Amino acid sequence: MPPRSMESPFSTRPGARRDHRIPLHLQGSGRWGDRGRFRAGRLLISIPLLFLLGGCTKKDTLHTLDRVQLRDTVAAEATLQVDSGRGWIAQPGALTAVDTAGRTVARVPLALKGTPRVLWRAGGRWYLRADGATAVVDSAGKALGTRRSDAPLARDPRGVWVYTATRNGSVMGLAPESLVPRWGWPDAGSPVSAIAVSPLGDRVYVALAGSEAHDVPAAIEVRDALSGRLLSTFGTGAAARVLVAGPDGTLYAVVGGSVRALRHGPDGLRQRWSKDFGGIGHSDPDAVRVSPDGGKVAVVAYGRELHLLAAGDGKVLEESKRAPRDAAWDAAGRLWVLGAREIRIVR
C-alpha cells in the first residue's frame, strides 16, 4: 500500500488537491485578511440595511395621551368603534366594549362566521360585514337583515337609506332596518368600487372601476340623492377603492397607494391635494378616518401602519408602523388606535 501523501490540503503546488476552507485556528488572522475584509464589508453593508428595515417596522411618532391595556390579544382582523368613552372591538363571535381602564363593560354576541368588520353604528343598530355578506343586528346581537354581497355600502347621514350598488353599477337604496332593496338607478356600465354620501345627504358619490367593454373610464360620479341625476364626473385614472365624505364636505378617495382630497368647485370636484403612501417600505391604505371637526385624517393600512394627516394640506403630522389593527375617533376629537394588546388614545 503506497504511503499516504503528507501534502497539505492548502498547498499551492500545481496539481495539488486544494481545500478552500479556512482553518479554524487561522480564521480572522492576517493571513486571511482579504477574505476577512470582504466578509466584514458585507457585514457593514448589511447593518444599515437591517437598521432601515427594522426601523421602518417600529417607527412611531404618535403623541399618546393614554394606554388602555387589553386582557386578551385581539384578532388580526379586529375593527374598532368608539362611543361614550368606550371602545367597541369586533372579534369572532362578539362585539366587546372596554372602558379606559381596560374593563369589559358590554358584550354583544354575534352569530356571524369569521371576524366581522364594523361598518358603522346608527339608530341602535350595528352594520357589519363578514364572510362575504353584510348584516344589520340590533343592540342585543339579533340579526335584523342579511345581504349576501360584498358590494360597497354607504350610510345615509339622515338615516333614510343604506346605499349600495350592483355589479353592473346600478346604485340601490336599502331599508336601513332590514337591508331590503327599495329602489335602484339605471346601470352605469361599470362595476362600482366604492360609494359615499355627502354630510347633508344630498349627494351620492359613486366610484366607477371602469369597463373597457362598455368604454367607461374609472371615475367618481356625483349624483343627486333624490333623483339620481348625474351632476358631475371626476376622472381618477384607476379605481377608487375607498370613498369617505368628511364633515366639511371634503371627499377623500384612496386610489392605488395614494389618498386624494377633493372639494367641490364651479364645475364639479377638484383635487385639493394628494399624498402617496405606496412604494418600498409602505403599505397601500385600507381606510380613511376623518376627525369630527374635519381637521385631521387618519389613514390606516390594517395591521401595518397608520398616518395622521392635516386635512388642509395632507401634511403628515404623526405616524406609526407598529401594526395597528384599526383606528377610530371619539366625540372629543381623540384618536383611538387599536393594537394587538392595547388601545392607544392619541391627542
Rank of each mutant, 00 (worst) to 15 (best):
A219W: 02
A218T: 10
G257M: 01
L262G: 00
V222E: 14
I220F: 06
G228H: 06
D224T: 12
V255H: 00
S227V: 09
V254A: 06
A219P: 04
G256E: 03
G235H: 11
S211D: 12
V254T: 08
G246F: 02
V254P: 01
G237S: 02
S227M: 09
P247I: 05
L243A: 05
T233S: 10
L231T: 13
G246S: 04
G228M: 03
V222C: 13
A240P: 01
S227P: 08
A219T: 11
G257K: 00
A245V: 06
G235V: 04
D248Q: 13
E212N: 14
F234P: 00
T236P: 07
L251I: 11
V244R: 11
A245H: 06
A225N: 07
E221W: 11
D224L: 07
R241T: 15
R260K: 14
G210P: 03
A239H: 07
V222H: 05
T233G: 03
A261R: 00
D215L: 15
V216A: 07
R229G: 14
P217D: 10
T250W: 05
G228P: 06
D215S: 15
L262F: 02
D215C: 13
V254I: 13
A218D: 11
V244S: 02
E212C: 10
T250Y: 08
G210K: 05
E221A: 14
G237T: 05
Y252Q: 04
E221Q: 15
T233D: 07
D248G: 11
V254E: 05
T250N: 03
L226Y: 09
I220H: 10
R260G: 00
A218W: 08
A253R: 00
R260S: 12
R263G: 03
A245E: 08
S258I: 04
L226P: 01
V222D: 07
G237L: 10
R260F: 01
A245C: 12
S227Y: 13
D215Y: 14
A225G: 14
L251A: 01
A240D: 06
H264P: 01
L226I: 10
G265W: 05
V254S: 02
V255P: 00
A245F: 05
T250K: 02
A213I: 08
S258G: 04
P247V: 13
L251W: 01
T236V: 11
L262R: 00
I220L: 14
S232T: 14
L230H: 09
L251Y: 02
